[in-house]
Write a protein that binds this DNA or RNA. Structure first.
Length: 409
DNA sequence: TGGTCCCGCCACTCC
DNA sequence: GGAGTGGCGGGACCA
């Protein structure tokens, strides 16, 4: 359960978003030469718990970016796997659609005209979103209920909502209701809705960080909604999965500042760069834990806030300093980001994970963090000198003729 | 105050 | 039986 009774000074949950974690994950692996992905290595490199990696990996696997290889090991397929995965998903959905003559789920779930308008279903019968296309996936797997509820499966169902119709935008409420499966049991639906909505947020975070999805709001009621960016929102295009908006490679990410000003890896959003988008914050547990500890040690909350502000400003400075050089892994960056073209060894592969881990050991490259630690070091030196001096004075009072030669570290 | 989503408990699966 | 996996929901954070 979440920590209770503790206040996280200098901590922002935004900095740990699943979307940003995904961005950093992709930034770490989306390069030539990557063959396998190890969960433990990834978790330690990204400074997050293993549990979070499972979330990312499940979603990425469901869209063809990864393939499970063995325990703790995944094969890296990369963005090139997405078109095929989407194609398969669409074919699967259409097949299900044809097996079970459709009941338009949109008209059942979206019982008001405005919602239906927003839902924007096509007149094209092939493109209509049917109950079966979404729900039969569930009914055929009743036995394996656990798997049925997996994040990966939910991701696929969610994507199918867009793939088998010309649905461009779907509200969070509707998505959760549709994905619940049993639209005929409103009480049961409501009961599960809250839980599933949480998962949708997780999924949306990840998909948004890959630029496949965009979070938006319904114009009429400002209710949260998701917009599919994968194919320009037209039914014709939806038939050609290859029209998928190509997810950005790490080089295409830009350094950006979150609402708190932290430099972060952010996919170039095609629109609305002002509002907070998913996956726009740094994910750095290690740093935040340091802040937490520091704040507990000195107990000076205002000081921490000031330092955070300095950090923010420093990040901005770091951003400027880095200029157009690729993108920033939050306040960290891999020590050595090797690209194939930069590597003389064409056959180089990161199969030696110890070497890989060493190569990608995050190191502080952020000016602000450097300043912050320098500040602590200076404070420590000052304190140490003072303490030593007082100690000397005390000693001199007792042994006036003796002096110490201790120096601060 | 409602939306968002991190966090970690713990049930389940696999070896 | 222990390690790996991941569903789930409480509750903190944010606008």
């Amino acid at each position: 359960m979440a920590e209770s009774g503790t206040v996280h000074y200098g901590y922002s949950r935004k900095q740990k978003s699943l979307g940003l974690l995904c961005t950093n994950f992709l930034g770490m692996y989306d390069r030539e030469g990557i063959v396998t992905v190890g969960l433990d290595e990834t978790a330690s490199q990204l400074g997050v718990e293993r549990r979070r990696i499972y979330d990312i990996v499940n979603i990425l696997e469901s869209i063809g970016v990864l393939a499970r290889k063995a325990k703790n090991q995944y094969s890296w397929i990369g963005f090139k796997g997405i078109p095929q995965a989407l194609k398969d998903l669409k074919e699967e959905a259409l097949k299900e659609n044809s097996l079970n003559p459709s009941t338009d789920v949109a008209t059942e779930v979206l019982d008001n005209e405005e919602e239906v308008k927003t839902f924007n279903l096509s007149h094209n019968p092939n493109a209509s979103l049917s109950t079966s296309s979404v729900l039969s996936v569930k009914s055929k797997n009743v036995i394996d209920q656990r798997r049925e509820k997996s994040l990966g499966q939910l991701t696929q169902k969610f994507i199918k909502l867009f793939l088998v119709s010309d649905v461009d935008t779907i509200s969070l409420d509707d998505a959760s209701r549709i994905l619940l499966g049993d639209i005929n049991d409103p009480s049961h639906m409501r009961e599960n809705s809250a839980a599933k909505v949480r998962r949708l947020y997780d999924i949306a975070n990840v998909l948004s960080s890959m630029n496949l999805l965009e979070k938006t709001h319904q114009s009429q009621n400002r209710k949260p909604a998701f917009r599919w960016l994968g194919f320009n929102g037209t039914p014709d295009n939806s038939k050609d999965v290859a029209v998928l908006a190509k997810p950005l490679s790490p080089n295409q990410f830009r350094s950006d500042r979150s609402s708190r000003g932290a430099v972060c890896a952010t996919p170039l959003s095609p629109k609305n760069p002002i509002k907070r988008t998913f996956g726009t914050d740094i994910t750095n547990n290690a740093e935040m834990k340091k802040n937490k500890v520091a704040s507990l040690v000195d107990g000076n909350h205002k000081k921490m806030k000031t330092e955070r502000d300095e950090l923010t400003e420093g990040n901005h400075t770091a951003h400027k300093q880095l200029g157009s050089k690729n993108y920033v892994f939050g306040p960290f960056e891999p020590a050595k980001v090797i690209k194939q073209e930069e590597s003389k060894d064409e056959g180089m592969r990161y199969q030696d994970w110890e070497n890989f881990a060493a190569d990608f050991q995050p190191r502080y490259q952020n000016q602000a963090l450097g300043d912050l630690f320098e500040h602590y070091v200076e404070a420590w030196k000052t304190w140490y000198n003072k303490a030593t001096q007082e100690c000397d004075n005390n000693k001199q009072q007792h042994q006036p003729s003796k002096s110490t030669g201790d120096q601060p570290p």
